[in-house]
């Protein structure tokens, strides 16, 4: 780990002033579950690390007229246990509770979950975010068991965010603050597929801090289903978050977002639209699952993930609608 200056600002004003205009100068430290490893592996070599855990206003889950405001330094444990989140936004609570390590839940933060870097082993071994060698992707010709089945490149890593799919399904927004001011963007716009090595997989700019997440107050049924082989700490192989607004006994509208299948959380728009006007049954859930994976472009070793994604959608829908399979 390269030596760095450590800053511990008490206010957002101080914090944003410590950030720089380009990547590589400063990194924001919250839970540290990813950043410390990135620094140990020299994937991040910031000259300054800005701890934001001392900034009071970044904590807390607060009900507002518009919905819920979830501070960036709220831990995954706090999120998973929060009564309002559990009652109103089970997709979010499921996703946070699904992380099998209590230590990670205690340390990891909501902001960190969204800003963490991909777990792609080519990236982690220093071959770059796009893992290109001599103009060819190492991923497509290599070990892509845990890689993307959607997106079509040039990036093939999968977004590691646990909360991203749920937030997109719930039509949440994220607030980003720099010394120049704040902007609020839909969660779906926060995640981007990088086209080259110099861009990142999130819309956050180097001088910005993700300060909070805003979840709308909406009467939705929601759930997240993660396909995990291990009960102990591990990444999901695929996941789906769904949010359903009912119109009487049938679906009014549904949003279905897949996780761990693309460089960003992957919204299955057509599958969601297909569900409108239907009851949620085992059959319709299964059909929605099939629709959700249409157009999947699996790589040499990850066709199995198509089945997993399909199953995740089906099971998330049944969980959201509380239908027993």
């Amino acid at each position: 780990m390269q030596a760095f200056e450590y800053s511990n600002p008490a206010s957002l004003k101080e914090a944003t002033a410590l950030l720089a205009a380009s990547w590589g100068e400063a990194d924001v430290l919250a839970g540290g579950t990813d950043l410390i490893s990135l620094m140990k592996d020299s994937l991040h070599t910031p000259k300054r690390v800005v701890n934001i855990k001392s900034i009071h206003e970044l904590g807390g889950i607060v009900r507002t007229a518009a919905g819920l405001r979830i501070g960036a330094t709220v831990t995954m444990d706090e999120l998973a246990r929060n009564a309002e989140v559990r009652a109103g936004y089970p997709a979010l609570a499921d996703a946070a509770a699904g992380i099998p390590s209590p230590q990670i839940r205690h340390m990891g933060t909501v902001g960190g979950d969204l800003c963490q870097r991909p777990r792609c082993w080519y990236y982690r071994q220093g071959f770059g975010l796009l893992a290109m060698k001599e103009g060819k992707s190492l991923v497509t010709g290599g070990e892509n068991q845990y890689h993307a089945i959607f997106g079509g490149g040039p990036a093939y890593f999968v977004s590691a965010s646990s909360l991203g799919p749920a937030l997109i399904a719930l039509e949440a927004k994220v607030r980003l603050l720099s010394a120049k001011g704040a902007r609020v963007i839909p969660a779906i716009e926060f995640f981007v597929t990088p086209q080259d090595e110099s861009t990142r997989e999130i819309a956050l700019r180097p001088d910005e801090i993700l300060t909070e997440i805003l979840v709308l107050a909406a009467a939705t049924h929601s759930a997240t289903y993660e396909v995990r082989q291990k009960e102990a700490l591990d990444w999901p192989l695929a996941a789906a978050s769904v949010a359903i607004k009912m119109k009487g006994p049938v679906v009014g509208s549904a949003r279905i977002v897949l996780g761990h299948v693309a460089p960003t959380p992957w919204e299955a728009t057509a599958a969601g639209e297909w569900l409108a006007g239907k009851n949620i049954t085992v059959e319709t859930a299964e059909a929605a699952g099939k629709a959700a994976v249409e157009g999947a472009q699996p790589l040499s070793h990850n066709t199995y993930k198509v089945t997993l994604a399909k199953t995740a959608v089906k099971r998330a829908l049944l969980a959201a609608a509380k239908v027993r399979a």
Binding site: G32, T33, P102, Q103, I104, H106, M107
Partner: peptide, 12 residues
Amino acid sequence: KSVYSCSVLAID
């Protein structure tokens, strides 16, 4: 609360 001390900075 349990944490991984390998992923916490001492100063932090």
